[in-house]
Every structure is written in structure tokens, then in C-alpha cells.
Write a protein that binds this DNA or RNA. Structure first.
Lengths: 149, 149
DNA sequence: GTAGGTGCAAAGTGTTTGCATATAC
DNA sequence: GTATATGCAAACACTTTGCACCTAC
């Protein structure tokens, strides 16, 4: 379930409510829906590809413009998982992190309660207000390890 | 002190020893020295700018090519700290992580012993061999918070 | 009606590559 | 001498922007 500050996306498209002067356009609904359905890590290109299937006239700049918007209003999070471009996912209430296989590119999500404590410690120690947290591990999964001996 | 698998850089340039067939060129020495002296987070452009001051003929592609080499042989680590490009730093024996101010761009490093435990847990749970670890926090430092009220 | 969003094509970044020349070994 | 690095310019991939048209409010 998504329900954040300025624009919120509910279960079905038509329930989306703009709360900030951001206009509700068919493109925005479509993009949000695809991100939601894609659950997980999609880059702009993939998002564009899928969007085009439903609305062949949609443009890549609209994708990028709206990703930036969604990011800004906190609906979507941007991740750099080490391949030269970004992945996008809906912001979820529970923090979760990423484990990436450098062999096959597979991305595994995991949760990590310790992070919360760490975050507080670091915030306090540096007098920061921390708004973003990310833990990133990379390595090789068991099947990729087998392949390379 | 830096002393890793295939090529090692010691205190002064001339002590550098290639251990892997990688040739020791003046450009490589220069780049490594600048990364070392720059201590911290320099992007390729900044590295290039400084290198040009000492060797006006050095080219940006040499910078990139060698950054890739250094990364591959484990001398240097690449970090994406969220501004559309990478930062590079010498690999150090102690794991450290990054706290970035979204207001002024300042990067603070911190260490975090808990991460080691986390890493082991995640590796075990997913049957991974984890080779890279990164914890990234972003937010606002105290002076940027004041500015924006 | 108007501020704001879209599509398109063009421009920007950051990064990589092909090739002839130069250099470490 | 030969394999490997370099410099240069050209190509790339990802992302942003300018502008005329369109649409949500």
C-alpha cells in the first residue's frame, strides 16, 4: 500500500488522488501502475517498453520527467545497483535492501532491522536528519560460484 | 597504506610495483598519486583536471581506462553517491561507509562494525559470497537544515 | 482560460571504443 | 621486438531540455 505525502496511489488506478497540484494524467497513472505491477527493479527503458504496449504514443521523456516527480514527492525510490543506470521502485513502508549477484545480475531484497539502530547512531553522531538509507551487498550467488569453479 | 593483490602502490610513486603484467606508466602513477592525495571522493572529471595540471597531454580516456583497471585489480573502489556520476577512492583495509548531505553535497565517512555481522548473516541466508559492501545514508546536515528552516 | 503536462527532436552528461602512434618490458 | 598503453576523435548509453501543442482543473 502506498500513501505518501503529496500524491498517493491506491489499489486501482482510478483511486489515485493528487494532493499537491500535481495533475493526474493518464501517463502518470500508467507509469505508476507499471512500477507497482513490475514489483521490483525496473529501469527507465524497461518501464518505457511496457508503457508503450499500452500507450504507444507515450514518450521516454515523459517517463523520465515523471520518475523525477515521483522521486521528488516520495512515491518512488531510485536505486543505483551498479550497471550504469537506475532502477525504480515504489516506496514501501518497510525499509529493505539489496543483494546483487555480480555473475547473473539477480537482485535479492532483504530486510535488516539492525539498520534502524545504525541510522539513528549515525544521525546523532553527525547531527544529520537522515532521509535515505541503503545497504548494498554484492557478490556471487551459489550457482554463479559453481560456474566459475 | 595500499597493498593489494596485483599491483601495489607504496608511499612514493617510484616504489610502485606492478605484479601482474600491468605496465607501470607515468600516467598510471600520476592517477594513483592524485587519488591518494585527493583522499576521498573524486570523480573522473576532477581527477582529469588535476592530472592535466601535471601532464597536460593526458587524456580523459586514459583516466577512465585506468580507473577501470584499478577497480578490476582491487586498488580502487567506485562509489555512486547519487549525483549522476561516480567517485573513486583507494581501497582501504577498513570498511567504511558514506553519509551524504543532500543540501550541500558534503560526504562524511563513517565506520560501522555492525555491518560485518549483517554481511555474514545475509551471505549465509542467501548462500552468497559477498565481495562488496556499502552502507549509504543521505539526508541533511545541521547547517543545511537551518538554511531551509 | 490557464497553468501545467506531453511528444518530439535535439542537446547534455558521463563513459567507452577504434585506431594509429608511442612506450614498457 | 612485441605486447600493451596512450591520445584523439568519434560513438555510446542514459538523461535532460526547448518548444509547440494538448489537457486537467
Amino acid at each position: 500500500m502506498v500513501c505518501i505525502s503529496k500524491m498517493s496511489a491506491a489499489k486501482t488506478d482510478n483511486e489515485v488522488t493528487p494532493l499537491h497540484g500535481e495533475r493526474v494524467t493518464s501517463q502518470r497513472l500508467l507509469i505508476l501502475r507499471i512500477i507497482r505491477e513490475g514489483e521490483g527493479h525496473m529501469d527507465a527503458e524497461e518501464l518505457y517498453r511496457r508503457a508503450t504496449e499500452e500507450d504507444p504514443r507515450i514518450s521516454l521523456s515523459t517517463i523520465y520527467r515523471n520518475l523525477r516527480l515521483f522521486k521528488r514527492i516520495g512515491l518512488v525510490e531510485e536505486r543505483y545497483l551498479g550497471e550504469g543506470h537506475h532502477h525504480y521502485e515504489l516506496r514501501r513502508p518497510t525499509q529493505h535492501h539489496h543483494l546483487v549477484c555480480l555473475g547473473c545480475g539477480r537482485v535479492i531484497e532483504f530486510e535488516c532491522p539492525q539498520t534502524e539502530q545504525m541510522r539513528e547512531d549515525v544521525a546523532k553522531a553527525n547531527d544529520f536528519e537522515i532521509t535515505d538509507t541503503e545497504v548494498y551487498f554484492a557478490g556471487y550467488c551459489s550457482s554463479c560460484r559453481k560456474k566459475r569453479g
